[in-house]
């Protein structure tokens, strides 16, 4: 299974790189879709069907909206020539990337293999969760019972985002 996930992650990296360098913006959007749908297969292989359902639906709707935006505006990407500020930004980005890679290799040695062990807190959640919450689906039990505050915060964040979108996009307002 590790080999399969490695191949899929390779596909995702290829799609992300192609999305940056594509000349046509429509094919760039489709390459972004490649990243999202590969992530869905990764979630399914790692035994997280709840996340896979949410990811596949949200990815489809986002792709529809992005394709509509690209078809409505231009399909050509506007190229800019690199000046001194561009070179400085590129060097800074490469330096930060190397720094992150170094700290990642340091911190990966003290972590366990993905999915092989569970935290002490998670053990208390898993033991007898069906009797405590009464729900057969453990994820719903955790999301709405043990971690109810988080879910309420997510719902309020979504409402606030919609209010912001309406504030920006409504030109005329209500009569």
């Amino acid at each position: 299974m590790d080999l399969t996930i490695s191949i899929i992650v390779g596909f995702m990296i290829f799609g992300a790189l192609y999305a940056i360098h594509a000349r046509d913006l429509l094919s760039s959007v489709i390459a972004c879709g490649l990243v999202g749908y590969s992530l869905v297969i990764c979630f399914l292989l790692l035994k997280a069907p709840d996340l896979a359902i949410v990811q596949i639906v949200v990815d489809t709707i986002t792709l529809i909206i992005m394709v509509a935006v690209v078809l409505d505006s231009s399909r050509e990407e506007s190229y800019l020539k690199l000046d001194t500020q561009g070179y400085i930004s590129a060097v800074t980005a490469i330096f930060l990337g190397l720094l992150l890679l170094y700290f990642y290799t340091v911190s990966i040695q003290s972590l366990d293999v993905l999915g092989k062990s569970s935290l002490r807190m998670a053990k208390h959640y898993i033991e007898g969760a069906a009797q405590k919450t009464g729900s057969a689906n453990l994820v719903t039990g955790v999301v709405f019972d043990f971690r109810g505050y988080d879910t309420m915060g997510e719902a309020v964040v979504l409402v606030t985002a919609v209010l912001g979108v309406l504030t920006i996009l409504r030109l005329r307002g209500k009569k």
Partner: peptide, 18 residues
């Protein structure tokens, strides 16, 4: 069926919006 099978409020809501 969010408390029995995979899925729930977020996934089903996005399907309805779709």
């Amino acid at each position: 069926h969010g408390h029995l099978t995979p899925g729930g409020g977020f996934a089903g809501g996005v399907v309805i919006a779709g």
